[in-house]
Write a protein that binds this DNA or RNA. Structure first.
Lengths: 230, 230
DNA sequence: CGCCTAGTTGAAATTCGTCAAACCCTGTGG
DNA sequence: CCACAGGGTTTGACGAATTTCAACTAGGCG
């Protein structure tokens, strides 16, 4: 169960790009009106249709935003990391309702700020609004890209694209550490675990990748992989 | 070819929700720094990768924003109508590049405002930024919805959903006037013209709709239609 | 009136999801 | 330390939905 902590949250505020340009005094002021909440793994922060008027800031852990279709299939929309915020819909519109589900995918601590408090800060420090706007604009771009991918790229190209965005290099080996289970990856890429699994097998058979463990995949030739996908 | 008109554009500014809360004098000031450009049907306003630092406001006509996949397939992202704006990516980030294509789908006149001018107005009238933020937030919601639909709802459900969002009522007849060609509708719904055509035929055979002209479709029972799609 | 593009229809091919079974990894409790 | 349970993962077989290719038709504009 979520538990509330009413101690100092300056860390939380200091962490967030939308606030971290403020000076200590200003941040302290904002921290006053934030309250911290803890969630355990798999706990829901809110669900579709919930009425809410708070801004959520991730302090620690990770949160998954997803949506459900009529038929019950999930589409993961994004994963939030420490410093990210959400709930802007609720905050910017009077009478805001959540349009998605949010779930903690690990032990997570977040800060909540109520609309009425945030509104004051927005008036007093216009830079905050500028930064929120900048963040949301970036997300809009990402979301539009995701739409295009899910709609017109075949699954294999989506997987390759995802891999290429998560490569890490280590002493002439290129590999990817999957940041989530294949089950969740499937809902993120708009497909099913089975299809993900099959595509990985196919890529491995063709000598393009090698699966070391469930989460760690070696890529033999990234350029060739990207070439294959187009 | 686009031609420039340097006369008064107060109309243009007055039209736009992000500015229309200002008084006459303020709007006049902004209109000073806007310049009007005309485009003919099918003319490109900008393309992916173009560097740009202007905000575009639709004065008249319609503009289609779309994206191209590796394989050359198009995905229509949205259609802009008079009063809508675009180019926020360019305006909010220094060094902004367009991430999509924009095409006039009818004779279109737009107003352009340069970043350096807009920035002044944003500082002077914070309400403008609030409204831009509100608009972009709504678009983000729509974009996320589009992602989910395209990825997990079958084509028929997407079509029905689209129809239901575009119904007009007129003396106990419910009908829809398609705001774009079926070709473009197909790229909007993430499918092909052939599939769109087949689904419409199927819906007509089942007595749910009737095609009067290419653009005008009568809906016999909206509730039943929505029921069928779930 | 005729051309050109958009739209329609059919048949074949393909991708992908579903269902089912087997496997494997991890953590738990004996 | 091992056995077991349970979820995630893999693989196969199958079928449904959709795309592709091709041919044909219809509507709009010169």
């Amino acid at each position: 169960m979520a538990y509330h902590n009413h101690h100092s949250h300056a860390d939380c505020i200091r962490l967030v790009p939308i606030f971290n340009h403020l000076n200590d005094e200003q941040m302290h002021l904002i921290a006053q009106s934030a309250n911290e909440v803890q969630y355990v793994k798999n706990e829901l922060l809110f669900r579709f249709g919930d009425k809410d008027d708070t801004l959520y800031i991730i302090n620690n852990g990770r949160v998954r935003i997803y949506s459900l279709s009529e038929s019950g299939r999930e589409q993961t929309i994004r994963i939030l990391h420490p410093g990210d915020f959400m709930g802007e819909v609720a905050v910017l519109q009077t009478e805001g309702y959540h349009s998605n589900y949010a779930e903690a995918i690990s032990e997570t601590s977040i800060c909540r700020i109520h609309k009425k408090d945030l509104d004051q800060y927005l008036d007093r420090y216009p830079e905050i609004m500028r930064r929120i706007l900048s963040d949301i604009t970036k997300r809009l771009q990402l979301s539009e890209k995701q739409t295009v991918q899910v709609s017109i790229e075949p699954v294999e190209a989506r997987i390759i694209d995802f891999l290429s965005e998560n490569v890490e290099d280590e002493k002439n080996h290129t590999y990817v550490t999957l940041p989530m289970s294949k089950k969740d990856l499937a809902t993120y890429l708009g497909t099913t675990p089975e299809t993900i699994s099959r595509k990985f097998s196919s890529l491995e058979e063709r000598g393009l990748i090698k699966r070391h463990t469930q989460k760690c995949i070696e890529i033999f030739d990234l350029d060739e992989l990207l070439f294959v996908s187009s």
